[in-house]
């Protein structure tokens, strides 16, 4: 340590601490998202929604657009309620794949990010492979996984984990790399161990970026789960999509699409709320 001290420099620490040098597009969206204030605002938002959806309904009926091209919103909603008992089990299958695959991927991604950022040299060696994992659509591996593991849950869960893990890892690593030398010096001045510095300084500082990574990972996981279900196997929402479209049951098809977008929104809202609770100090 004798000669290895860094020259005390605070301008860097300052920007690190305030998070100005990190682009937290998603999290600033969390923090500054418009809050709905008055009844009038709610009414206006609802009115616009009614006009848009009603307009689509009206236009589709007026121009006699056939159902197999684009069903009107009303028949999609009808199909959603009518078919829901049949779709529900498939929603369950997809959720099982998404949650278990995401959990595996997130844990592995987080641990790898935490370990690798402790060893800058190891990080340099691993970085290109991580980049390949992030940029390669894991969907491409699904046919191979099916060959090896059959048509059950296994290939899909692996695909979801492979899609979510690298996303979590690359974002978490960015978070862990946000070294604020002044805050670490503060902890060290009280005799903090490396482990204490990790849990009490590095981890909380990385949390906003970790949440961004988890959210992107979950969305990518959903994407990959549905994609994998479309490739093969007899269950899951993706399988419903191929099945309904092959039978030209377009209202049912769009009902499943509606469920999928609701899932995506729920994922966003979940991490929005977590971020608001635990990472709102960063604005």
């Amino acid at each position: 340590m004798s000669g290895g001290d860094a020259i005390p420099e605070f301008s860097k620490a300052k920007s690190g601490g305030d998070g100005q040098d990190v682009s937290l597009t998603n999290l600033s969206a969390f923090a500054s998202g418009p809050g709905i204030k008055s009844g009038a605002e709610v009414a206006a938002i609802l009115a616009v929604a009614v006009v848009i959806i009603g307009g689509i309904e009206l236009a589709l009926r007026l121009f006699h657009v056939p159902q197999y091209i684009m069903p009107p919103p009303s028949s999609i909603v009808y199909a959603l309620f009518d078919e829901f008992p049949l779709i529900a089990p498939h929603l369950g299958y997809t959720l099982v794949e998404l949650i278990s695959g995401f959990a595996i991927g997130a844990v592995v991604g987080l641990v790898m990010a935490a370990v690798i950022t402790q060893f800058p040299f190891a990080e340099k060696i691993v970085a290109p492979y991580i980049l390949i994992l992030v940029t390669t659509p894991m969907l491409a591996l699904v046919p191979l996984l099916i060959l090896r593991f059959g048509f059950g849950y296994t290939p899909r869960i692996i695909a979801v984990a492979l899609a979510a893990g690298p996303m979590v890892m690359i974002n978490a690593a960015t978070g862990f790399r946000r070294v604020d030398s002044a805050k670490i010096a503060l902890a060290r001045s009280y005799g903090a161990s490396t482990l204490q510095i990790f849990w009490k300084i590095r981890a909380p500082m990385a949390l906003p970026m970790i949440l961004v990574g988890l959210m992107i990972g979950a969305i990518f996981g959903l994407l990959t789960a549905v994609g994998a279900e479309m490739v093969g196997g007899g269950f899951g929402l993706g399988n419903r999509l191929t099945s309904y479209s092959s039978m030209i049951q377009m209202p049912q098809f769009f009902a499943v699409v509606l469920i999928l977008s609701t899932l995506g929104i729920l994922i966003y809202v979940l991490f929005f709320l977590i971020g608001k609770k635990w990472a709102s100090w960063e604005t």
């Binding site: 605070f10 002044a182 503060l186």
Partner: peptide, 13 residues
């Protein structure tokens, strides 16, 4: 030994 750093150096979270 207690230290008071530049810029307060409080933990924002």
């Amino acid at each position: 030994i207690g230290i008071v750093f530049q810029e307060a150096n409080l933990l924002p979270w």
